[in-house]
């Protein structure tokens, strides 16, 4: 029970941290609406002459854009940057002095942020955007139920990827390059930027073996009811599988990372 209380407390802290940055959150809200607006106009232009592109209709695409970018506010995290900064400025020492699982500490702290974001970004964006742009409700039998679960899994999947990226800082001191590369991979291959059916076939084949598309593309397909029941279950199971694989990898890498840590001073 005490253990749980601990991680609940981390969430609370992550949540409280963001209360201090209300203005930035407001600006971020505006930015997201701008991206959605830009995408709206672009896709409208794209669909001017076509009914279906890469398996998507105009209506589906609009919903995909709004829900996708809103969900992004929820599953985004700064774990990699926080670990990198902490290693560089030495404040990692303070984290190591706490009797907690470093990985779960970061997961739950970020989840607290995600809860904050859900309340003050995701929901408001969906509400405002659906008043301006055409957005449809989740379809299919399972969409309404499985989509929220799937997005929560997206959060933990992405958290794991960021955590591993953060750990690179223990080995190279500066993880900025890896961090940017990871950001690029996630932005491009998670499906938020564009559904992965737009990529050439060989890219899609490669992506099948990587975790990225389970961050956004898979949950959004569930929302849109574009997958048959069996595939929905399979998608959720694959998400869980990747979460476990990445979590365990994190635990193993941590073991080596801690030995490589060098903190300057004195």
């Amino acid at each position: 029970m005490n253990r749980l209380a601990k991680y609940w407390a981390f969430m609370r802290m992550g949540y409280l941290t963001y209360l201090a940055y209300r203005f930035q959150v407001l600006m971020s809200f505006v930015s997201y609406l701008l991206i959605i607006a830009l995408n709206y106009f672009l896709w409208k232009a794209v669909f001017a002459k076509h009914q279906v592109i890469a398996g998507f209709t105009m209506e589906q695409m609009m919903t995909y854009v709004v829900i996708g970018w809103s969900a992004r506010t929820f599953f985004a995290n700064r774990i990699d940057r926080m670990i990198g900064d902490a290693v560089r400025d030495g404040s990692i020492a303070m984290d190591l002095l706490k009797p907690t699982n470093f990985q779960l500490y970061h997961y739950f702290r970020a989840f607290g942020r995600a809860v904050f974001m859900f309340l003050f970004m995701t929901l408001p964006i969906i509400i405002v955007a659906s008043m301006i742009f055409p957005v449809s409700l989740p379809s299919g039998k399972l969409g309404p139920y499985l989509f929220p679960l799937s997005v929560i899994l997206s959060f933990f999947l992405h958290a794991g990827i960021s955590y591993l990226t953060g750990l690179v800082a223990f080995f190279t001191r500066n993880n900025e390059g890896v961090l940017r590369f990871k950001q690029l991979l996630v932005e491009v291959f998670s499906g938020v930027m564009i559904p992965i059916t737009f990529f050439p076939d060989w890219v899609q084949k490669v992506l099948f073996w990587l975790p990225f598309k389970y961050i956004a593309y898979a949950p959004l397909r569930i929302y849109l009811g574009m997958e048959p029941l069996s595939k929905v279950h399979q998608g959720v199971l694959l998400q869980i599988m990747w979460i476990v694989i990445i979590y365990l990898t994190g635990q193993i890498v941590w073991h080596y990372a801690i030995k490589r840590l060098e903190i300057q001073g004195g």
């Binding site: 601990k6 802290m13 941290t17 706490k98």
Partner: peptide, 28 residues
């Protein structure tokens, strides 16, 4: 217990009491 003069073990953006309560949970 550890204090590093140049660093803080508290969390920058949250109130002191919140940080102390969090430590209460962490140290059970």
């Amino acid at each position: 217990g550890v204090v590093f003069g140049q660093r803080t073990q508290l969390w920058w953006d949250i109130a002191v009491i919140e940080a102390l309560r969090l430590l209460q949970k962490i140290y059970e």
